[in-house]
Each structure stands twice: as C-alpha cells, then as structure tokens.
Design a protein around this nucleic acid. Structure first.
Length: 426
RNA sequence: GCCCCGUUCGUCUAGCGGCCUAGGACGAUACCUUCUCAAGGUAUAGAUCGCCGGUUCGAAUCCGGCACGGGGUACCA
C-alpha cells in the first residue's frame, strides 16, 4: 500500500497555526520516511468563518517552514457536488436522512435538554420521516452497539453508538460539514494514514461509521497530542503567539522550528537534541510518538534557534538596512550570544547607536590616535582619559560610547574592524 | 453532566519487570574563564515516577479504582 498523508487546514485564522505546523511536520516526515506523498487540502466549508487571505498565508508559511507538499492544494469548496452526491447515496441506502428542523427548534430542544439534565443530542424528530428533501442531511447513527477503532499511538478506542449524535453532514447552504468532507476526500484522495490532532478522537467514530456505510476500507489512524499553553490548556492565540508568521518576524529559523517541533512528543532514538529534518526522516517511526500533550516552550525554541543561526541568514534578514560587508564585520562579535535574527541590532548596539558624550569620545580618540593598537595601550589610553582603573575605565568608556550596558567588546571591534574604521564609528 | 484521552524534575523528555539510590536537554543558581554582555567549561538545586490497592521474588514499567489535567459534546473545523 502506498503511503499518502495529508494536512487539512481551515482558512479561518490569520495564518498557519503552529499546532498545524506540528501535525504538518509529522505527516510530512512520515510520508517521506515511507517514500509516500504528502498532500495539502484546504477545508473551506465554513463560509461564515472564512478569513480573507488566510489560505495564501497558510500556504506560504508552510513553504517558508520547508514543509513541501507533493499534491494540492485541493479546495473543498470546489468539490461541492461530490459531497452532495455521496450524502444522497447514504440517504438512498438508509444511512442518512433529510432533516427540516430549524436552528430555532434545535436551540430550544437543547435548552430543554439542559434543564432536564439530558445529554445535548438531536432528538431524532426527522429520523424516521423518510423525507425526500430538507434543509440538511443527517447521519443515521445506529442506536445500539459500539464503534471501535485502532489508533496507532493510543491503541483501541471504543465508543457506544447510542452516545453518538445524528451529525449533520450537509448544511443548509449546501456545504458539507467537516465529517463528511474529510471522509469523502480522504477516501477519494487515497489517504492511507490520517495523522491529526487528538481533538478529533471523539468524532472519529462518526468517520468510521461513514467509511462503513460507504463500504470503504479504513485508513490508519494516529492522533497526535495537542500542543499546550504553559497553563496546560490547548495552545491558543489568546495566551501565546501561535501564528507561524510571528515566529518568522521574530527571527526564528524554519529549520530550528522544525527541529524543536520534532522534539515534542517524540525523541531522537540516540537522545540527540539537535538534528535535521532529513535525519528525523531516517529514524522516525509513528508508534514511538508520545501520548502526553506537551507544553510549547518558547525559551527552548530560542536556545535551539541560536544553534542554527548563520551569517548568511543575518545578511538576508537585514539586506534592506545594512550592507553585506557591514554585517559580515559585525557578525563575529555577536554570533555567540545571538539567538534570534531580530536581536542583531540591539546586540551590536555599539555600532548603531550614536554615543552620547562627545568630549569623552574625542579625548579617547586623541589619546588612542598617537600610538599602536594593543590591549595595554588601550587600557592606558582609557585610564589617562578617565583616570580610572582598567576595568572601571572600560566600563565607563563602553557606557559613554554606547549609552547602554550591553554591547560587544571594544577591543575586539578594534581588532576586527581596524583602527580607522573604529575611529570613524567613535 | 456525559463521553474520550492523558499523568516521570518548573518545561521538553529517556525509561518498555531487575542495569533506576530515575539519565539527558532547556531554564535556574554558583564557580572558573574574561575587556562588558554573552558564549564555553565545571558544579549545584530540582521527580517519594499523581494517589491507593493488586499481580510478582522484584514495578516508573503490568492490572484495577480514585484524584487531577486536557479534549469533545454545533447547520466550527
């Protein structure tokens, strides 16, 4: 069997959610590991929540992340008649039915159920009516028995049918709901492995039922743990940065993000922390994914990002602001302590901030100008100007020059940039 | 409420019945190095493996119950 995986984002947010990037990575890696294909499908069936430009941003973020698809993007909104036809087939087979209940009636029904402490479920008013038309189509879920499925990373999971609602599968606007959409598309696109977030576990029995009603063979299921906020709730934009574009703007690198994501709920068999996606593909296996939902730790991502920073990235990031030559000169001074691309300027502040005290600068320059450069001379010069011991003098000079308490060492800059260049900057 | 999933240092994790007086990483702290800040090096603190029972000669590892956390319960995905 050919391995085919997919990611199916909804264009209902600003951008690609980091949690989606996470499942995308796993789907991608698993497909590559098995010489299969990774497909992208846009699930744009909720017309009311559609966000303008979202799809494009999701696609470009995925591309930026280096998670490339082999097929797609397919759009569900372009395949409407497919879902309709399949839903009607289900009605004909007696596994689905038309429903004419209005949203108002449904709301009232639920309110009543709540006061009576009953589970909020469709009461089945249209279930046995055998209508030949209606505003929606509902799945006719068996009233007894159980539906079981096997999850590669969690084992067997069982649900009682009587607790599964008669889910709407075609909405009144003619669009399918998620449940019909995924099943029809995953089957037609021959998706072999469905790797998605654990938020879908409880709707999986509905999907299993659908596969059975259609007479299709089941895909393999694997439900990934959800990424969490530090307070352990599901990772959300309210409490954390979640859009991939944010990470990009902050100066995080795609390979660092992929590496970090890889270490969540999965560990390199050799215990490595830093490894490439290519290497991950080599040693990955789905079964070893952890079931516990990890907290997303931006601090650790930052540390990892520092490991991946390279000169050419900085040049590229600041190409509209500073010349390549200038960045190449400064890079050696800041590379050790830099973790994010966006930190470059503040760390190299010495070179970008105009010194506040002109008198001191001039005096130091005069003193320095008369002799050869070296450590001792530097100290002496500073001492002669400030009248302080070397350590304090350096400190003072640094503060005088930069106006702040951070910055690269002055001497280093002299050695690297040379006297003329440094004097020019002073 | 009901259903489902989960529970090893603050965080990410290793661990698949004896090698565990539980290992690594991030973060924290201290010291060394040092021209500042970092980086690097070396240490230190931090987990009675959620709790209670059971199986076993032996349990973080297997089983049951409970507690706690999370997810779901829509004509949202």
């Amino acid at each position: 069997m050919k391995v085919r995986t997919r990611i199916a984002p909804s264009p209902t947010g600003e951008d690609l959610h980091i949690g989606n990037a996470y499942t995308a990575l796993i789907n991608y890696v698993f497909a590559k590991k098995n010489k299969g294909s990774f497909i992208i499908r846009i699930e744009d069936t909720d017309r009311s929540r559609l966000v303008e430009g979202s799809e494009n941003r999701i696609l470009s973020s995925l591309k930026w992340l280096g998670i490339h698809h082999d097929e797609g993007p397919f759009r569900q909104s372009e395949r409407l008649n497919l879902y309709k036809r399949h839903a009607e087939e289900l009605v004909a087979k007696g596994h689905a039915y038309y429903c004419v209940c209005t949203p108002d009636r449904l709301n009232e029904m639920r309110k009543k159920q709540e006061v009576n402490h009953q589970p909020p479920m469709y009461d089945g008013r249209c279930r046995e009516l055998k209508l030949t038309n209606g505003s929606t189509i509902r799945l006719k879920v068996p009233k007894s028995g159980t539906t079981t499925f096997h999850d590669v990373i969690r084992g067997d999971i069982q649900f009682e049918n009587k607790l599964i609602d008669d889910q709407v599968i075609i909405k009144s606007d003619g669009y399918p709901t998620y449940h019909l959409g995924v099943v029809v598309d995953d089957h037609l696109m021959e998706i072999s492995h469905i790797i998605r977030g654990e938020e879908w576990i409880s709707s999986t029995p509905k999907h299993i039922l659908l596969y059975q009603f259609f007479g299709w063979t089941l895909p393999v299921y694997a439900h990934m743990p959800l990424l969490r906020n530090p307070d352990k709730s599901k990772l959300s934009k309210r409490k954390n940065p979640v859009w991939v574009s944010w990470f990009r703007e902050q100066g995080f690198l795609p390979e660092a993000i992929r590496n970090y994501l890889a270490t969540l709920a999965w560990a390199h068999p050799d215990g490595k922390e830093i490894f490439s996606t290519e290497e991950m593909i080599r040693v990955f296996n789905l079964e070893s994914i952890q079931t516990t939902a990890p907290v997303f730790d931006t601090e650790k991502l930052k540390w990892m990002n520092g490991k991946y920073l390279k000169e050419e990235y900085v040049v590229e990031y600041y190409k509209d602001k500073y010349s390549k030559e200038k960045i190449k000169l400064i890079w050696p001074l800041v590379k050790e302590r830099m973790k994010l691309l966006s930190e470059f300027e503040s760390l190299a502040g010495f070179f970008f901030i105009r010194p506040p005290k002109k008198e001191i600068r001039k005096e130091v320059r005069d003193a320095l100008g008369s002799c050869e450069w070296n450590h001792d001379v530097m100290e002496k010069a500073i001492r002669s100007v400030t009248g302080k011991e070397a350590k304090d003098a350096f400190m003072e000079l640094r503060v005088a020059v930069t106006g702040k308490t951070v910055g690269p060492p002055l001497l280093e800059s002299l050695e690297i940039l040379g006297r003329e260049e440094t004097l020019a900057r002073l």
